[in-house]
Structures are given as C-alpha cells and as structure tokens.
C-alpha cells in the first residue's frame, strides 16, 4: 500500500537520507531501526509531509504523495504520532479526540454548533481503545507522558488510517509501559487491518512486535527482513557492534 522509491534528502551538505526504497504491505507491523543520526526521523517526516524530499517518490495506494502537505496525507489515510508528543494542551483528552474527529469529518467550518456535543460516543470509544477513559475529562496539559503518547495514538486513529506512522512511540516511557503500548498498537493494527511503520530504539520492543524490520545507517537502508534475518545480518551486527542488541539507545 505504501511504496517508497529512491527517497533522498540533504540538509546543506549532509546526506540525511540517500536513495532509500522499501514497501509497506497492508496490516503489517514494520519497524525502522538504526543508530542515532541514521536518518530515521528525516525519513518519517518525509512520509508524513513535514519535510519535502529532494528526490524519489512516495506512493500511497498508487498516488504520489512526496509533495503533499501533512493534511492531504492525513486525508489519504495516514495517521501519525510524533517523537515528542504533540497534543492540544488547552483541551481535555476527550476534546482532543473530538477535534481530530471533527477534522476528519470536515466539520471545522461550523461556527454555531457546540463542539463539545459532537462525536462524544466515538471519542469515548477511541479513548477506551487506548485505555484512557479515566482521563477523558482531564486537560491534556497536565496528563502524564505515557498518557499523552496514548492520547496521540487515539487522535491518530480518529482519521481512520490505513497506515499509522509512529516516530519513537515509546521514547521517554518506562520499560513496562513500552511493551504495553506496543502490544496495544499491535492489537489495534490487527483489529483494524491497519499497517504500522514505527521507529524504535528499544530492541526488545522491536523484536517483540515487528513482523518485519528495516535497518538504516548513515542515511541508507542497509538491511530488511524478519527478526531472525536481521539478527544474523553481518552489516547490522557491524553497525550495532559494541552496543548490543538490547541497548536502550537513549
């Protein structure tokens, strides 16, 4: 469903991403790993439309989205979460999701209807899916970080995505929480038939959740395959040599 062809981005003279090609098939959990500075986030921001690529194509169900804005990409069915959570601090958790839902249903031009009354049931259902029902009425500005990560997930799900991009979904969370969030994501992906592409530093999370793994180093894709193949790959071993596979990487 998502095909990336020869994606390239340079910042000044720095080749952040060079000639990266891969594909995401429907329903799979695909991990993108690599050491710090390998180009994972740049790659992600090009997929999400936050950064415009210098070269290459990104095809979503056959449509080239390499020059599309984030909101077009969202409308085409790609949800995303950010490395540093981005939520609406002045709204409650429920209102955050409601706002995402009104955006999805293209109702934001309405100036008369009370926003609080729109999509309440749907918002509560999404919050329940990410186990955030208890926090529904609390402002996002005071939620704990792990809760914000889950709120972001609920907001990303509000546009009913076919593909979910998660940039370091477990960064800043306690190890126990990490496994929980990824298990939750995997369950949602399966239930919705949604593909998930995520970057991650925690190798336990990666090998425990991903059905397939992409490895980047110095802006290039150096390996892809299932967990066993990646573990055995000599180039991946060379990149990670000395740090060990289960390093937290923070």
């Amino acid at each position: 469903m998502l095909v990336v062809q020869n994606l390239t981005k340079t910042f000044g003279g720095v080749h952040a991403v060079t000639d990266v090609s891969f594909a995401v098939t429907a329903g799979e959990m695909l991990a993108l790993i690599g050491p710090n500075g390998a180009g994972k986030s740049t790659c992600f921001n090009m997929l999400g439309g936050q950064i415009r690529p210098d070269g290459g194509r990104i095809l979503l169900a056959g449509t080239d989205i390499s020059k599309a804005t984030p909101r077009t990409i969202c409308r085409l069915g790609v949800g995303r979460t950010f490395q540093i959570t981005a939520t609406f601090a002045s709204m409650t958790a429920r209102e955050n999701v409601q706002t995402a839902l009104t955006a999805h249903h293209r109702q934001t031009a309405r100036v008369w209807q009370e926003a609080d009354t729109l999509h309440v049931a749907e918002a509560d259902a999404l919050l329940a899916q990410v186990s955030l029902s208890a926090e529904a009425g609390r402002p996002a500005g005071i939620l704990a970080y792990g809760d914000l990560k889950r709120l972001e997930l609920a907001m990303a799900l509000a546009c009913n995505p076919k593909l979910l991009l998660m940039d370091e979904p477990t960064a800043g969370m306690a190890p126990a929480e990490r496994a929980g969030l990824m298990a939750l994501t995997a369950g949602l992906a399966q239930a919705r038939g949604m593909a998930v592409l995520f970057t991650e530093h925690d190798m336990d999370v990666v090998f425990g959740t991903a059905s397939r793994i992409l490895v980047m180093d110095h802006g290039a894709l150096i390996a892809q395959g299932d967990a066993a193949m990646i573990r055995a790959d000599p180039r991946v071993r060379a990149v990670y040599l000395g740090t060990g596979f289960s390093s937290g990487g923070h």
Binding site: G48, G49, Q50, T69, P70, R71, C74, R75, G79, R80, F82, A86, T87, F88, A89, S90, M91, E95, Q98, T99, A100, T102, A103, H104, Q107, T108, A109, R110, V111, W112, Q113, E114, A115, L118, E152, M155, A156, A158, C159
Partner: peptide, 21 residues
C-alpha cells in the same frame, strides 16, 4: 463551536493540527 476548537488546536500545536487534517 468546531471552528473555535480547530483554531485553538492550531494554536496549541500546529504540527498536530496539520497531522489530523
């Protein structure tokens, strides 16, 4: 109304606002 919420959303986090469309 939804307009006001969307406006406030854009103020709180333009990044997230764009990402939800």
């Amino acid at each position: 109304a939804p307009f006001g919420f969307a406006l406030r959303a854009s103020r709180d986090s333009a990044l997230r606002a764009e990402a939800i469309g």
